[in-house]
Simulated scan of single mutants.
Amino acid sequence: MIPKSHHSLVNKNIERAVVAVQTVIGLGRVVRERKVVPMKYPLPEFVVIHKDPSVLKDVESLEDFVREGLNVRKVTLSQDRELYGVEMRAEPNYPILGKKAGAKVKAITEKFRGMSNTDVEKLLLKGEGESPLTVIDDVPIEFEDIHIVYRVAEQMQYETTAEQGFVVLLDYIADTSLKDEGLIHEITSRVQKLRKEAKLIPTDDITIYYSVEPQTSEIARVASEQRGKIEVILRKSFFPLSNLENKNDSKVVITRKLPVRDGEIEFVITRNA
């Protein structure tokens, strides 16, 4: 028997907040992909800008999902684009404007691109209740004829994109500690895959040994300096391979050499009993 839905029980506020959060997470992932920053690497800050405070309140109510969904340390909500140096530029929507303007589209494009940030602001304000927005070379310009492109003019650590009234900025420049977290994840994820390949279970009493080449690589530095954190994540001992007397010992479960970022790690997993 198929259960009946009760629309009276649907919480519209939660639905609205979920849609908003899905939108900003989607935009954040677009920016990550554009800057080629894998999700496994944490980043310092994600800024969400929207002129409607109620929309920002919705995002705030599910902020933890945004932080986890984008692997960022901080989520900042704001109504102030100027605070972050975000400027707007008008670009033609060629598929629509081209049909309407014909040969005039090139001249109209030049006039679009000559608009200042203030000009674009005024155009959008008119768009809320006026049609056409403006007339250029005797061609009426509607909202559907233009694309609004956002760019960060001053603060170069941010990459930006926009959609559905949201402007988002991602601080994609990670400091050393955040980069190290990403490299730790690279190491531990490979160990976990090896454990799975060897059909080991979490309760198996094992030790993981490692060796990195070149020793001057960042991954070698992290394996050495962050060994304690790696052991906490793996819940197993993680020692340099030089501590293992005999790699051919019968207690060796699996051995692999794997590329990791700027180096190659040899992993050897042994049983302790």
Results as ranks from 00 to 15, higher is better:
T161P: 10
I108D: 01
I108N: 03
Y172K: 09
A101Q: 07
V105A: 07
E144H: 05
I146M: 01
N117A: 05
L70T: 00
I173W: 09
S78C: 11
P132K: 05
P95K: 03
V152N: 12
V135F: 12
S61I: 01
L77I: 08
N93K: 02
L123S: 05
G114W: 04
L70Y: 03
K100E: 05
K74R: 14
A153T: 12
Y150P: 04
K99N: 04
G127I: 07
A162G: 14
L83M: 13
H147F: 15
D64C: 01
F112L: 04
E68N: 04
S189K: 08
A103R: 13
G129Q: 10
K106H: 12
Q155A: 11
F65W: 00
S131F: 11
E154Y: 10
A174N: 03
E91M: 12
L77W: 01
T109K: 04
A174M: 07
G69K: 00
T134F: 09
Y172L: 01
L133S: 02
L62T: 02
V135I: 15
K100T: 09
Y172G: 00
L97K: 04
K99I: 06
Y94M: 11
G69I: 07
K104W: 00
P140M: 12
L170W: 07
V168A: 05
Y84L: 08
I136Q: 03
F166A: 05
V66T: 02
Q157K: 13
S189A: 14
V139S: 00
D175C: 04
V120W: 10
V139L: 01
P95T: 06
K122W: 12
L170S: 03
K99V: 07
Y172P: 00
M156C: 12
Y172D: 02
T76N: 08
M88C: 05
N71C: 01
Y172Q: 02
Y150L: 06
V167C: 04
E110Q: 15
E128G: 00
F143A: 14
E121T: 14
R81A: 11
K100C: 06
G85E: 05
P95N: 10
E87Q: 14
L169H: 01
V139Q: 04
V66E: 01
M88G: 06
R113T: 03
Q164A: 15
H147W: 10
V191I: 14
E128Q: 14
H185Y: 15
M156E: 15
E121P: 10
K104A: 03
T188H: 03
E91L: 14
V75T: 12
F65S: 12
V66K: 00
V139D: 01
E82Y: 02
G114Q: 07
F112C: 00
V86H: 08
T161E: 13
T76W: 06
S61P: 03
E91C: 09
G165E: 13
V139G: 01
E159S: 13
K122D: 14
I184A: 01
L178R: 02
K104S: 06
S131L: 08
S189L: 07
S131A: 13
I146G: 02
E110D: 15
G85T: 12
R113M: 08
K106W: 11
S189P: 06
T118W: 08
A153V: 11
K126A: 13
I184P: 07
N117P: 11
R89H: 06
R67I: 13
I141A: 08
E186R: 10
V66P: 00
E68M: 05
E68I: 05
K179C: 05
T76I: 15
V139F: 02
V86D: 06
G127L: 04
K106T: 14
E110W: 02
